[in-house]
Design a binder for these strands. Sequence first.
DNA 1: CCTACCGATCGGTAGG
DNA 2: CCTACCGATCGGTAGG
Lengths: 206, 206
Amino acid sequence: MTGRRQYAKGAAKREEILQVALEVVGRAGPSGATVREIAAAADISPTGLMHHFGSKDELFAAVLAARDADSTRFMPAAGPALDRLTDGLTALVRHNADVAGLVELYVQVLAEAMGVDHAAHAYAAERYVRVRAAMSGALAAAVAEGDLRADLDPDVAGALLVATMDGLQNMWLYDRSLDMAAHLESLLLSWRAPVGADVASAGVDT
Amino acid sequence: MTGRRQYAKGAAKREEILQVALEVVGRAGPSGATVREIAAAADISPTGLMHHFGSKDELFAAVLAARDADSTRFMPAAGPALDRLTDGLTALVRHNADVAGLVELYVQVLAEAMGVDHAAHAYAAERYVRVRAAMSGALAAAVAEGDLRADLDPDVAGALLVATMDGLQNMWLYDRSLDMAAHLESLLLSWRAPVGADVASAGVDT
DNA sequence: CCTACCGATCGGTAGG
DNA sequence: CCTACCGATCGGTAGG
């Protein structure tokens, strides 16, 4: 009973810290979000925070993972695969423009966690695999439905899509007037199947 | 005379430090390239190094600027614009795969210098403007030569190209088996004008 | 889970 | 008043 209550309390506190961290980072960015700052906002000591998360980098990884989990809500459940992908991704990047601090955190963690010994390395590496697979799957479905060119390689295009989204976010942090959604739509448009071509004619040479 | 010799000596030492820093960073990456490490390799004290460059971040910006200047050598001087662009960029990313530390530095500086007060901010911001303009210019030329779709917006595609290259480099740092050149070629291929279409038919709707 | 604090590192600087 | 340094060390930070 007591143990249960303590576990529940611990998990609740961890969740509370996570929500506070999401808010603080989204507002102040990773540079403004020190362990002391987040701890104070969550009504806990820096040491107490370190009890729930092993290190600052692990806290940041948890923040990004929570954001990843939340971002699935932008994906429409029904409709053609290409429409779902386009609408979902544009809604996502439009939302990202409202939480610049989180975008900044994402870009910085990706840039720093490439060493296998980095606390956020596993998160970043696994995220790449997962997101690339999701993009490639959606693109393959759109090809099967005839909305994307039949000769499009879903694996290659999936990697390009992820790379482009990452790069656009970095670019946007330097130029807030950049319309990430419009650029993303333009990319997807360039993979569209030619109009009135049920059987793809691409790749046919003379 | 004496003054001249001293100026020349200072410039020469600065250049020597820059070359040493390029080598050290390319090998050890930005995390392994401390001021003390670079200074030692250049046979100078940390303070002496700081005399030539205002700060570590300015040194890193100078390293990246030197690399940018050097990277123009991969661009072919003659030929159709699309071929020059494709060959130049693929040669560049293939070379990048040999200096992973510099790629890492590039990604990290871009991720950290978004604040206007950062020592490398001006470098990063201006680089984006310059590189985007160069890409857009090359793409516009390729459109004019009929090798890319007539309805392609060179500004949008230029931004996409830069974003994709940045994103691919970040991805490659996590997955060295990623073929950046092949992915880049695939992107450019998707913008190709339809075969046998002197007057572009894209955008024509029924 | 807190107060109090350390051990280490590193960028940058003051004096000469 | 300038350039080109060096030996020594400080101030601030951050994780823990």
